[in-house]
Amino acid sequence: MNEALANYLASSQAQEWSVSLLRGVPGLPPISQAIHIVGVAVIMGTAVMIDLRVLGLAVPSQKLDEMVKRLAPWTWWALVVNVVTGMPYIFAQPYRYLLNPVFGIKMACLVPALLVTFSLYSTLKKSPSFWETSNARQLGAKLLAALSIALWITVIFGGRWIAYSDYIFWNE
């Protein structure tokens, strides 16, 4: 399926546009990659900081539901920015990404990272005490937060290792 998608993209107009964008605009690759990293930093400062708050490790004076209301828009905007800054690379070199097992791992962790983050946000928005009504729920929230942090860190590792996939997949 990935190969079919890569084949389709490789012969598409989007591929030509992306290549001419990334090759033609001076400095665009490092600039767009730096913006992508800033997007990751915003996720770390919002989603991961909320996870750390759930775990009782950070910002003890801030209330979780207030944090979610204030920080959630930043998380989703960072996501939009990172899709926009990441897509041209996939369009320009579809085989490099879609056939790369490390890119697959990154995406396979990004989806659950977003789902866990979204479920924490939406439950806290609806009822601030959702995760406090029983010991089991408190533990559940902590497990979700730890899972979220682990997934986001794996996404970052995956993003960085796309360029080094040969180190892990010797025989590919």
Partner: peptide
């Protein structure tokens, strides 16, 4: 010459983004 380079680089990215996320707030 080993996987240590991308590993350390990834740790670098995880913590620099944490640094900047907190600075930004």
């Amino acid at each position: 010459i080993s996987w240590w380079f991308p590993f350390i680089e990834s740790v670098h990215v995880v913590f620099l983004t944490l640094t900047f996320g907190a600075i930004l707030m």
